[in-house]
């Protein structure tokens, strides 16, 4: 059969040659480092200007020395490892529960009416308010810290997933029904792919909030971890270690978010 319509081939978005794309990535990464480098320079100038005492503002060099000192004592790795472990386990648990509960509540109007107000009220509780209760119930081991991280990771994931599901284009859902999909198959083939972009940004937010709640947990009750390093260095007047802990939290948070962002970009390539 021949069609009268002229077959104009739309131009598919051409991928730039790998070399050029690679150079662009390097350029962008270099640009992103400009401000941190300037900050270090300003920090160094301020610290050596005589305006501040070393205990108020140690130089970048002193912080670097503190880093080497902690590495030398073999402590640094233990602090980082335990904090990362708490975040990852708490994020997996909280994010997983958020996905399931957000999915169920987003799909079922009766369950939404039953549970959503309670969850919203719990969400309004500031993170630190949970700490005494968790310590009372769960002791001072790993469980209360991981639980607090899970609480932090849960809410962004739950909120984005349930809201996105409630707003999936009903016309696409109707196509799914018209073509014989219902229940789990409708969810997997239409609703889940439709919410994937929104759910992914919720998962990234959940991870960021997991780090936030981790520091809250470690500040108050722990003997190891980056949050403990913060409070311990404050108590012992080691401002260099305090600043080091802040820099490490920034780097670790950025690194884990970057990994998720990479996964997100790979997945979203299908959607655009």
């Amino acid at each position: 059969m021949t069609l009268a319509e002229p077959q104009v081939r739309p131009v598919a978005p051409a991928a730039p040659p790998a070399a050029r794309r690679g150079r662009r990535v390097v350029t962008r990464a270099a640009l992103g480092l400009v401000v941190p480098a300037l900050l270090v320079v300003v920090w160094h100038l301020a610290a050596t200007s005589g305006e501040f005492s070393p205990s108020q503002l140690p130089t970048p060099g002193a912080v670097l020395a503190a880093l080497l000192e902690l590495i030398g004592r073999g402590e640094l790795w233990r602090h980082i490892a335990i904090s990362v472990q708490r975040v990852l386990i708490g994020f997996a648990v909280g994010g997983g529960v958020g996905l399931v509960l957000g999915g169920v509540i987003g799909l079922s109007a009766p369950l939404r009416a039953l549970l959503a107000p309670t969850i919203q009220a719990l969400r309004a509780v500031p993170s630190l308010a949970w700490v005494p209760l968790l310590l009372l119930w769960l002791g001072i081991g790993e469980t209360p810290k991981i639980t607090l991280v899970a609480i932090g990771a849960f809410f962004p994931v739950y909120t984005t997933v349930s809201a996105a599901l409630a707003h999936v284009d009903h016309r696409l859902v109707e196509v799914g029904r018209a073509y014989g999909r219902s229940g789990v198959r409708l969810f997997l083939q239409v609703q889940l792919p439709a919410i994937a972009p929104g759910a992914l940004s919720g998962i990234r937010l959940g991870l960021a909030q997991g780090w936030l709640f981790l520091v809250a947990a470690e500040l108050i009750a722990s003997s190891i971890g980056l949050g403990f390093l913060l409070i311990d260095s404050q108590n012992t007047g080691r401002t260099d270690i305090l600043l080091l802990a802040i820099v490490l939290l920034a780097l670790l948070g950025k690194a884990t978010d970057g990994l998720l962002g990479l996964a997100e970009r790979r997945l979203l390539r299908r959607w655009t």
């Binding site: 016309r171 696409l172 018209a178 014989g180 219902s182 439709a194 959607w271």
Partner: peptide, 18 residues
């Protein structure tokens, strides 16, 4: 219920964008 012997084409194409 949804009729398997029928197939619907809607006013909008309603293709799944992904």
């Amino acid at each position: 219920g949804v009729e398997p012997r029928a197939a619907v084409v809607f006013q909008e194409h309603r293709l799944l964008p992904w």
